[in-house]
Computed example of a mutant assay.
Amino acid sequence: MTGGRTAPRILIAVSVLTLVVAVVGFVVTLVLNAFVFDKYNAYGEVPIPGTGQVHLPEGQATVSFHTQTIGSTSGGLPVPPLELGIDPPDGVPEPQIIESYGTTTTINNDAHVRVWRMEVAAEATYNITAGGQVDGYINPRLAFGHDASRWWLVWMFAGLFVVGAIALAASITWAMRRGRRPSPAGAPQATFDLSDPYTPSADGIRFEQLRHLSALRDSGALTEEEFQAEKRRLMNWGAG
């Protein structure tokens, strides 16, 4: 029985530990994505409106709208109409631009959100022209970088939390059922049989009657002769 109760307790402890790891991992991953993994401006920035040069490697790059904010951006950073012009060096094909809006990241009133993805055919330094309706924004610019966030880790820890919660609920249910479990059918149980009362033997009856006769003689209710006569009669009855 002790071993049967230990298993649910172990599962409860493991489930709680899983939940703790999931929560800590979720928070740490969010922090790392915001402060360490995020490389949205790795290749440089160009003011809006304005021009500049950005050195882009071959492969995929991102273009983000980057600005300072005063109020909250909990509902997402509003992206104004923007214009992007890319002039590649001679002999280098122009990068392919694909609209791709991402989520807003805000750190100390500094906000950015991905607007485009670029497929860069060759590594080179590109001339960039940025424009748009950015009245009301503080120091708006286009940031060129690449995705380095580990959002799959965030989802992994979120899934781990769900698994831990399900395991915890199951283990608690298991422990409660174990606590209400009846004793096994084969377990010995104390029983008392009161249907067969004690029946004294014939010798026991004669012994009690002799004691009674002796008490009568000692009290004077019987003489010695009467006692002896009754004793012989009792012994003869027992022998018969």
Rank of each mutant, 00 (worst) to 15 (best):
G102T: 10
A13V: 07
M176P: 05
G59K: 13
F144T: 05
V23C: 09
L17R: 07
E224N: 11
F37S: 00
T104W: 00
G76L: 10
T173H: 08
K39P: 05
V21E: 06
A34S: 13
A122W: 06
S201T: 15
Y40T: 06
Q189A: 15
A202W: 04
V113H: 00
F157E: 14
L32A: 03
F65N: 01
A111S: 15
S214M: 05
A202F: 02
L11T: 08
Y137G: 06
L142P: 10
A239V: 02
S74E: 07
G132V: 00
A13P: 02
M156G: 14
S219W: 02
G4S: 07
V92L: 07
T73G: 00
S74D: 14
R180A: 12
F157R: 09
S171P: 11
Q96A: 15
H212L: 06
T129E: 08
A7M: 13
N127Y: 06
Q228M: 12
T62G: 09
T125Q: 05
H112V: 07
F26C: 03
G131N: 05
E224Q: 14
T103F: 13
I10W: 15
L160F: 04
G59W: 06
D203I: 07
Q133F: 08
N139M: 09
G132W: 01
S183E: 09
G145N: 07
L11A: 14
V63L: 00
L153W: 12
G159I: 04
I166P: 09
I97V: 15
V154C: 05
S15N: 04
Q96T: 15
E225H: 03
P200D: 01
R5N: 09
S149T: 12
L32Q: 10
S74V: 10
E208I: 13
S183G: 09
L84A: 04
S149L: 07
G220C: 02
A158M: 10
A124C: 14
A122P: 00
G50T: 09
R178H: 13
F227R: 05
A169T: 11
P57M: 02
G136N: 04
V28L: 09
K39C: 06
V113C: 02
A229P: 02
E208K: 12
V24H: 12
I128Q: 00
P49C: 11
M156T: 15
N108S: 11
Y43N: 10
A165F: 13
M176G: 05
D147T: 15
N127Q: 03
W237Y: 05
R177K: 15
A7L: 10
M176S: 11
L77Q: 08
S219Q: 13
M1I: 12
E123P: 08
W116N: 00
L82H: 03
P57D: 08
T106W: 06
N108T: 11
F26L: 07
A202I: 05
E45H: 03
G204Q: 15
M176I: 14
L222A: 03
E230Q: 10
